[in-house]
Design a protein around this nucleic acid. Structure first.
Length: 620
DNA sequence: CAAACCCCGGCTTT
DNA sequence: AAAGCCGGGGTTTGTA
């Protein structure tokens, strides 16, 4: 039964219909098919039996069946009354609309608990009774939950692999204390590998691993996949070595571990479990130690489904590793499978790293551009301003600039590049430039489409700055596009500054303008500007800017307007700095002279206008 | 570039 | 289950 089926049957149930619709906290368990009745239960059990011994011969079958049926009836008589009573209580307990008053709920709970205590193990594998226990868990206090957990200790594997029991197990983990979670983990210990390949168990294990297990417990679980020898629980072994350490010590051990991991991965992937986070973690271990043919086989196994793992931390690491280590042909296949998901991938925290790794390690930049550009083009503005998605593009423009990438990230990305040495030949910088060559026209197109909106967004303005400041030697030198963009920027900041909507009021505008006027970013180390020459920035831009906005000092109102905004005044500071270096230019000189007239006006600015304060100093 | 700030997810508490 | 604290990462800011 699929999840949706389950939901549907739940929805049609008459009990359910009365329920408040918005109650989403309802656990999945409760949405298991409703209206349990004896027939269904009997069916369940007979199904179970059939599964257990399929080998029964026809002739003996009848007799065996009868025997079992009899036994079943007996069982029912023995604990049947209790089950009935428990279910009655549960019917009252589970009502949601109106909710059961607390005191009544407690009474019902206590009574249910009295009946359940000691027989929980018998209840949990029946689909209706297991729901009773779930509700009980939900409404119980810490102490009682712990007791339930303890009582179920021998049953957890069965629970995890049971279509009905698995929900109870998840619920126990969810509401359980740290201690009871450890208990459950411990009881499942030794069975993790079996669970991963089990239809129901894989879900339970994945949740357990990715949501409830502590980092130590995660390591513990993963070690079990190395091989039986390493499946020791805490206390049983103090071996805390990482997989690399163990494998570095003994080639023989490495071989065994690699075989175990490889086999597990292969089985799971072929079963269609590529999306499980725990599997990503197992793969992450594997790719740390695989070598030779193992690498080729692994890539071959996954090359069509990389998209399924780029959104988890471990999966992204695996994806980056195989991208780095695959050869040209393999990369082509991988990219083909990724194309369709390129947009969600680059927007994802981890997926954007994968995207950037693709940009950084693949020699065939033409193929990369051809694969991704068409997907990005319709939404470039969104992507350029996205928290994560902008990173790969910033990289293209500016390399691994430390003001955009943390040392940790830089190190990690460089490791992938390192790994790619065997299969990639071009210098990394060459790859970046080639790719940029393809991308830059699209960047400009995106900006031109909605310049005002892009500049209005902080991230957008930052990107535009990187864009126009880029001065790599590209084959189709985009100087025309750049000049046009610079003009567009000036056009966008024309107009009345006192208007709320003027760009000067959005945070980054002032920086953008000042940097362009200075002709480069301020370098704190060298205490000067890293100026970029020959692309129309610096003095050239400053003159143009002053000319278009202030008519080079002849338009008093415009100058005053800029001076009375702190942000605007900082921009003027930039102009003054720039013009002072070029006093031989008559326009520059004229502007400076004109500005002297505003001496008083600047002095009269309140202290909140920090830009004006600074301007006073610079003008002296 | 560094300090301040902010936002979010995870964890603890009631 | 809700509220609040904490730490990490990312962003903004300050104005050389």
């Amino acid at each position: 039964m699929s999840r949706t089926d389950r939901k549907r049957s739940a929805d049609t149930d008459h009990h359910r219909a009365k329920r408040a619709e918005k109650d989403v906290s309802e656990d999945e368990l409760d949405s298991v098919s409703d209206s349990p009745n004896e027939e269904q239960e009997a069916n369940e059990e007979s199904n179970f039996r059939e599964e257990d011994d399929k080998s029964t011969e026809n002739s003996r079958e009848a007799r065996e069946d009868q025997k079992k049926l009899l036994k079943e009836r007996k069982m029912k008589r023995k604990s049947g009354i209790e089950v009935e009573r428990i279910k009655q209580l549960w019917e009252k307990l589970r009502v949601r609309n109106p909710p059961v008053p607390k005191d009544v709920r407690k009474k019902l709970c206590d009574e249910t608990w009295k009946l359940c205590e000691g027989v929980i193990g018998d209840l949990v594998l029946k689909h209706d009774a297991s729901r009773v226990v779930q509700t009980l868990v939900k409404f119980s206090d810490r102490e009682r939950r712990d007791k339930i957990c303890k009582e179920l200790e021998p049953y957890y594997y069965k629970l995890a692999t049971s279509a009905y029991g698995k929900y109870l197990l998840i619920k126990l983990l969810k509401y359980g204390s740290v201690k009871s979670r450890a208990l459950i983990l411990h009881s499942l210990h030794g069975k993790f590998r079996k669970l991963l390949t089990h239809r129901e168990g894989a879900y339970v294990l994945d949740d357990t691993f990715s949501i409830y297990a502590t980092p130590e417990q995660q390591q513990q679980i993963l070690r079990e996949f190395w091989g039986a020898k390493y499946a020791l629980f805490e206390g049983e072994s103090d071996d805390k070595r990482s997989i690399e350490e163990v494998c570095a010590e003994s080639p023989e051990e490495r071989r065994i571990i690699a075989r175990n991991l490889g086999l597990t991965i292969k089985t799971s992937v072929e079963k269609g479990s590529t999306g499980f986070q725990i599997l990503h973690a197992v793969m992450q271990q594997y790719v740390k130690i695989f070598e030779g043919d193992e690498v080729r086989d692994f890539i071959d196994l996954l090359k069509d489904q990389v998209a399924e793992m780029v959104h988890t931390p471990q999966g992204a690491d695996v994806a980056c590793t195989i991208l780095a280590r695959s050869n040209a042909k393999e990369r082509k296949t991988i990219l083909k499978g990724l194309k369709e998901f390129a947009k969600p991938m680059v927007k994802n925290q981890y997926g954007s790293m994968v995207t950037q790794t693709i940009f950084m390690v693949i020699d065939d930049t033409r193929m990369v551009a051809k694969t991704f550009l068409p997907v990005y083009t319709p939404d470039f503005i969104e992507l350029l301003t996205g928290k994560y998605s902008r990173k790969p593009f910033i990289y293209l423009l500016n390399g691994l600039d430390r003001s955009f990438f943390s040392p940790r990230t830089i190190k990690q990305l460089n490791q992938y590049v390192e790994m790619s040495q065997e299969t990639s030949k071009k210098p990394q910088e060459k790859r970046r430039i080639e790719l940029l060559d393809h991308f830059i026209p699209e960047f400009y197109k995106a900006f031109n489409k909605k310049p005002y909106e892009v500049l209005g967004e902080n991230m957008g303005a930052q990107f535009v700055l990187e864009l126009v400041m880029n001065h790599d030697e590209l084959s189709n030198e985009p100087s025309k596009e750049r000049a046009k963009a610079l003009q567009t920027i000036i056009d966008c900041v024309k107009g009345n500054l006192t208007k709320e909507t003027h760009l000067i009021h959005s945070k980054f505008t002032e920086r953008l303008l000042k940097t362009l006027i200075q002709g480069g970013k301020w370098n704190r180390k060298t205490k000067q500007i890293d100026s970029i020459e020959g692309i129309g920035l610096g003095f050239e831009f400053a003159k143009k800017f002053a000319d278009e906005l202030f008519d080079l000092g002849e338009d008093e109102d415009a100058v005053k307007m800029w001076l009375s905004e702190s942000g605007g005044a900082f921009v003027i500071v930039g102009l003054v700095d720039s013009f002072k270096k070029h006093e031989e230019d008559k326009d520059a000189k004229k502007f400076l002279d004109q500005l002297e007239q505003y001496d008083e006006f600047i002095k009269d600015q309140p202290d909140t206008n920090k830009g004006a304060r600074l301007l006073e100093k610079v003008m002296m």
